[in-house]
C-alpha cells in the first residue's frame, strides 16, 4: 500500500487483486453465497481507492480495510429492496425449515431478536416488500421498517465487534 500511495501502478494492481480475494473470502465466510457479493467487493475496492490517502503505513492494514468492507456491506444490505440477495433461492413459505439459518449468516441472524430476524429475512433475503412483510407479520409497515433498521444495526455492531 505504501508503494501504491507513491503511485506505483503495478504494486497497486497486485494489491487490489489480493484485497479482492481477501474481501470475497471474508464476505463468503460471514454472509454466505449472495447475489450482490461481487457488487460489494467492487464497491469496497472503489472505497479503498478513494480512501487510500488515509491509510497510515505505520499501522496494520486489516482494521482499515475491514472497517471499509463492513461499512459497504451494511450499506448494500440497507439499500436492498425487493431484490433477492441469495442466488437462486426464494422461500415461498418462511415457516419451512431454512438452510440459510444453518449457514454462516445464521450466526449473525441468530443473534437478533426473533422480531428483528423475521423482518430482516423477509425483506432482505426472501425478497418480500415492506408491505408484503407487514401483511405476513400482522404489523404496520412502519413497524417492519423499524425492525429491519434495528436488525441491520445489530448486525453492524456484531461485525464491528470482530475488530476488537
Amino acid at each position: 500500500m505504501s508503494q501504491a500511495q507513491r503511485g506505483d501502478e503495478d504494486s497497486y494492481a497486485r494489491l487490489l487483486t489480493e484485497l479482492a480475494e481477501m474481501i470475497k473470502a471474508y464476505l463468503l465466510n460471514r454472509f454466505g453465497r449472495l447475489e450482490m457479493l461481487d457488487d460489494c467487493v467492487q464497491e469496497s475496492l472503489i472505497a479503498i481507492h478513494q480512501a487510500r490517502h488515509t491509510y497510515d503505513p505505520g499501522r496494520s492494514i486489516r482494521p482499515w480495510l475491514f472497517a471499509i468492507v463492513r461499512h459497504k456491506m451494511i450499506d448494500m444490505l440497507r439499500r436492498q429492496r425487493s431484490e433477492q440477495l441469495l442466488a437462486g433461492y426464494r422461500q415461498e413459505s418462511p415457516s419451512e425449515p431454512d438452510p440459510l439459518l444453518e449457514s454462516n449468516i445464521g450466526v449473525l441472524l441468530g443473534a437478533l431478536s426473533s422480531d428483528h430476524r423475521e423482518a430482516v429475512l423477509l425483506t432482505k433475503y426472501w425478497g418480500f416488500s415492506v408491505r408484503e412483510s407487514a401483511d405476513r407479520l400482522g404489523v404496520s409497515e412502519g413497524v417492519v421498517k423499524v425492525r429491519v433498521h434495528r436488525g441491520i444495526r445489530k448486525i453492524r455492531t456484531l461485525l464491528e465487534s470482530e475488530s476488537l
Partner: peptide
Amino acid sequence: MNTRDLIDSLSSDLQPVPGFWPFW
C-alpha cells in the same frame, strides 16, 4: 464491469497521494 476490469481501471494513471499528516 467485472472485478478485473475495475482493478485495471483503478490502477491505471495512478496519482501519488498527498503527504500523510500523522493523526496526532
